[in-house]
Design a protein around this nucleic acid. Sequence first.
DNA 1: GAAGATTGATGAATCAATCTTT
DNA 2: AAAGATTGATTCATCAATCTTC
Lengths: 170, 170
Amino acid sequence: MSKRLPFDPIAEARRQWSTHWGRAATPAMAAVTSIMRAQQILMGRLNSALKPHGLTFPRYEALMILYLSRHGSMPLGKIGERLQVHPTSVTSLIDGLERTGYIRRVPHDEDRRATLAEITDAGRRTAEDATAELNRARFFTEPLRRAELDSISEILVRLRADEDGFKPVA
Amino acid sequence: MSKRLPFDPIAEARRQWSTHWGRAATPAMAAVTSIMRAQQILMGRLNSALKPHGLTFPRYEALMILYLSRHGSMPLGKIGERLQVHPTSVTSLIDGLERTGYIRRVPHDEDRRATLAEITDAGRRTAEDATAELNRARFFTEPLRRAELDSISEILVRLRADEDGFKPVA
DNA sequence: GAAGATTGATGAATCAATCTTT
DNA sequence: AAAGATTGATTCATCAATCTTC
């Protein structure tokens, strides 16, 4: 799939877009397709690195929320809120983490509708090992530099705030 | 799912990361999670807008490659190369577009291993209608400004070039 | 009725294995 | 053997519908 390309497909699309529809929407089209492809690239690199740890990147994110939580456990609904994913996705993520033994489901003792996900000792060890590796590799963002990474975060915070309804810190 | 959040989850993760592992990898972690979430947001907005046209964004991308191609047709393998996706994904994308009648499969007349995807008249009309809408809405990138969109494209071109093996124009 | 979680559906991505043709 | 495409498997995302509990 990742065959060597003779040219930049987004640069080519940009050229055709300008020709057919003028310049107005071309920067938006290019930025959107760039983000889509960047996500795909990063997800592929991260999943490869996490596979030996028995994790995927979405599962790693869920595991880290529990690892960093005050009590090592959290209601499934709250995990979904943090990750901004559908309840169904949380169920599937937690199913996967439970199969590998990194978390276990525990009934909530006040609200019997709710379920808690609780990180296990194996989960803690894996969270630490995987994080050490991702940190060492700078989350596989090469060849981007520190300043470029910060620019990306700064620009995208407004898009996220607009959608997710929080107030950006400034 | 898109419940209003009381705080920025990535700002919170950034704070915790610095505390536990120092600052070295924090910008990379924040940028990666920002890109993941941005992709999810944009994909959601685009899919909603394209649904009345009988399209998803990945199918729209494939359809546009055919619409803008010289002969209105292209071998499946070449489409996959442009999109940088696995052959399996191309088969599934083209299956979907064929079911809606926007493209049809045509046998390649020189190489009998190959299959061409050819855009239909209905496909051309839909490509034009959908593109008019996406252009009007600036690909649903609000609230980002023109300069921010350009920054994103410029920064990510090096990541893509690194992965996809083309030479960035500069 | 609303909230929390699950099941069953579809769509898109990957990989491994297969089949035909070059 | 290599190239082009497909099928079958898994994962993650969505939505709609359901079930229990508040």
